[in-house]
Structures are given as C-alpha cells and as structure tokens.
Amino acid sequence: MQQVVLEIKSHFRELPKARDFVREFCCRNAQWSFDEEDICHLELAVHEAAVNIIRHAYANRIDQRIVIEAHWFDDKLIFRLNYWGQSFDRDSVPPPVLDGTAEAGFGLHMIDCCVDEATYIQSEKGKKTVCLIKQKKTPESCVREAEEVNI
C-alpha cells in the first residue's frame, strides 16, 4: 500500500491544492489506467467533500485543519478527508432536485456519482472522516464500459 498526506486550511482558496494533490497521486500511479475523466471525477469528489467540510462542519471558518490522505491498495484507491468540526449525518440530507428548478444541493450527489463509495465516519476523539473509494479498473470493467458507450 502507498500513502501520501496533504494538509490544507479550511479556506476555499486552498481547494486547488487538494485537486492538484489528487491529480498528482493518480498520475504517479499510471499503471492503474485511470483516464482523464476518472481523474477529473476524483478531483471533483475530493473538492466537493472539502467544500462541505468548510461550509458545514467548520461553518466557513478559514483557519481549521483538513488532512487529506491518499491510499493505494491492490484493488482500490481511497481518499480520506479528516476534520475536527461539526459532525454530519448523511441520511439527513434530502436527495437533490435535478430538474432545473433547484439551484443548490448537488454536492453530495456529485460525490456519489464520482466515486464507487462514499462513507462518513466519526471517531471517539472528535475526528471525523469522509472516506471516498474508487475501485481499480480491470480489463473486464474496461470492456464493459466500452460496450456501454457503444450501446
């Protein structure tokens, strides 16, 4: 397993650092065959998770910590965003309205669309974690994707 860590402040201006971190980590492990679209989706998922932490967990305070860990396993890639603000109940958030009448409330849905699994964890010592998991592409999944595009 490989692991890399980035710490940023809870400020929107720090978000490009988080996206660059994701991109560099994915590109460093090119053997995983993530394409440009996969990398864009991972960048967006981590970005959206960090935005939620800044806006809701830290109530827009700009001097708080967000520690982002990236882990490579044999079968998956995991980004963990650790923070120490207000806890978050995923089930309390209603599903997004995507018919053009709503102007907000898309962030969590974007995360769900961009990764294979998103979980929200609270530890005993006040640390909270957003865990984003992307499964490794296999030759079979690549063929399946190509077939779906051709349908």
Partner: peptide
C-alpha cells in the same frame, strides 16, 4: 476547465 456544485448552481440561477 473545472466546475463544481456551486458553479453549476450559479449557472442554474442565471438560467432561471
């Protein structure tokens, strides 16, 4: 080159 949920939100606000 990059748009997030809040960026999509301002486009939808303008659209409406």
């Amino acid at each position: 080159r990059f748009i997030d949920s809040m960026g999509c939100g301002v486009l939808l606000t303008s659209f409406k």
